[in-house]
Amino acid sequence: MKKMIAQREIDVNEEGYLLDFSQWNREVGQELAAEKNITLTDRHWEVIDYLQDKHHKEEALSIRGIKKSGVINVKEFYSLFPGGPLKVSTLIAGIPKPKSCI
């Protein structure tokens, strides 16, 4: 389905995840974050860059991966993206929701 985000028409699935990463830009990320009541700081952007990088390398995302990332620890990750950190952060980053159970 289509959704207006940052004055652009974006394709998203029923959970609001972007279907086409090429439609993502930082303004889109900011607006998606605002919908989750998150104001993006430099720390958020560092994590988003990391997630997008992993996605482009087709490496699966997991909470264990976050712990080993060297970018952020698990505690801070939870505090930056409340309400389910991988779910929320990937939505903002414009990449698919991770399928792993861990």
Partner: peptide
Amino acid sequence: KLDMPPVGEFLEILSDSG
């Protein structure tokens, strides 16, 4: 293989997650 953490590491993740 499934990237499941060993028990000690899993407990750290759980604790850090709140």
